[in-house]
């Protein structure tokens, strides 16, 4: 008997889930396959960009980026983002407020409508703006007469980018604000706050991380949008060329040096993507951390049974 008890117990080191666990062999095979897939499909492409960009040395890399047309592409990309992101933040917040804090008929339809730009091909989106503002578009003659240029100019590029990125902020905020409910806002209102104060002091603080999350995603897409912008830009070097369009132009130039330069410009966009992911992960970590802390601090409900 003593021998039985003295025998070292199996599986005592960790919380065993004997009804719902795979054998270590299967578990590690699955992990290996998954990691292999991520390595080949997600890591390798990123590393490759830097490798190719630095093929001709660091000096060539810096020169490619300092090249005037590339530099103006950086400026234009930033300019567009500075216009597009704030517009969509304002839209996202107002749309989320209307959808999350009120009940009305056709709400599901409105949410679908907000989502719609995600489902539409960027190329189709670009074309829709050509239909309005292009030479033969509804407003083509009028724009011509007033010497206004929208298509093959910055305004058109801003418009299509706004279209493509409009759902990001709203989509992040709506579920968050719905989950937060309206009780806190109503409490603020009973305490005499007006609508704007309520929003500023109650709603915004409780959804700021979601908002930030939406902003960085919107920003990443605004800087990286290609299909829609390429249709309305005309890709005039130094004027209507954003970074992704610049990558395209360099890539399709015949020279090998331009090919390397394409990767150099692309590496800037990879850095942008990595920065986006870093901020995103930080935000997620923050939210999870806050939730974990809240759970520790609040007393467990099921312990309150008393008779």
């Amino acid at each position: 008997m003593a021998g039985l008890i003295a025998r070292p117990p199996r599986g005592a080191t960790h919380k065993s889930q004997r009804g719902s666990e795979e054998t270590p062999l299967i578990k590690w095979s699955l992990i290996t396959v998954a990691l292999g897939f991520v390595g080949v499909f997600l890591v390798l492409p990123l590393v490759n960009v830097f490798y190719q960009a630095l093929q001709n040395g660091i000096g060539f890399y810096i020169n490619s980026i300092k090249e005037p047309d590339t530099f103006s592409a950086i400026q234009l990309t930033l300019l567009m983002t500075f216009i597009v992101v704030p517009m969509n933040v304002v839209f996202g917040i107002t749309a989320a407020w209307a959808v999350a804090k009120f009940d009305f008929r056709g709400k599901a339809f409105l949410i679908t409508l907000i989502d719609l730009p995600f489902a539409i091909s960027p190329v189709v989106a670009g074309l829709m703006f050509v239909v309005w503002f292009g030479r033969q578009g509804f407003l083509g003659d009028w724009l011509d007469a007033h010497d206004l240029k929208i298509i093959f100019a910055v305004p058109g590029m801003v418009l299509v980018t706004m279209f493509v990125t409009s759902p990001f902020v709203a989509r992040e905020l709506i579920p968050l604000m719905q989950a937060n409910g309206t009780e806190q806002e109503q409490a603020a209102l009973t305490l005499g706050a007006n609508g704007w104060q309520t929003f500023w002091h109650v709603t915004l603080p409780s959804s700021k991380w979601g908002l930030l999350y939406g902003i960085i995603l919107c920003n990443a897409r605004a800087m990286g949008e290609f299909g829609a912008v390429s249709i309305v830009s005309g890709a005039i070097a130094g004027q209507t060329e954003t970074l992704p369009l610049r990558v395209d132009k360099l890539f399709h130039s015949a020279t090998a040096a331009a090919g390397v330069a394409a990767f150099a410009v692309a590496s800037l966009l990879v850095l942008l993507a990595l920065l986006t992911l870093a901020i995103k992960s930080y935000l997620e970590w923050r939210t999870e951390h806050a939730e974990a802390v809240a759970q520790i601090e609040s007393p467990k409900l099921n312990n309150s049974h008393e008779h």
Binding site: L4, I5, P9, R10, G11, Q17, R18, G19
Partner: peptide, 17 residues
């Protein structure tokens, strides 16, 4: 039930460990 493994001791069902 066998959903957790005891760290020590023995469990018998119908005298069988």
């Amino acid at each position: 039930a066998g959903l957790e493994m005891p760290s020590s001791g023995d469990i018998f069902i119908q005298q069988r460990r």
